[in-house]
């Protein structure tokens, strides 16, 4: 989880990733941030994030992203 937060904070400094729960649906991260986050997460965790995961269900909070990463690493 710490590694994920590190990646997120580097992409979009100033966002409270620990507590935010509407990152995508609340447009806290825009489409360009999303592209960067995907690129960084895929490199950092050696995973491939398909279109089926690119929804608020998986990207609205760091916790949800972390659960997705674990599912993809499984």
């Amino acid at each position: 989880m710490e590694k994920l937060l590190e990646v997120l904070k580097e992409v979009k400094p100033g966002v409270d990733f620990e507590n935010a729960t509407n990152l995508l649906s609340g447009k806290v991260i825009d489409s360009i941030d999303m592209t960067t986050i995907l690129t960084e997460l895929e490199d950092a965790f050696d995973i491939e994030i398909d279109m089926e995961y690119i929804t608020p269900e998986y990207f609205d909070s760091a916790q949800k992203m972390w659960e997705m990463i674990q599912e993809l690493m499984d």
Partner: peptide, 19 residues
């Protein structure tokens, strides 16, 4: 259209190469 394109390999590579 937009989301599949903005998360495509091509765009991710552009992002990686320029960021």
């Amino acid at each position: 259209v937009y989301t599949p394109l903005s998360t495509s390999e091509l765009v991710k590579n552009i992002n990686k190469a320029t960021r």
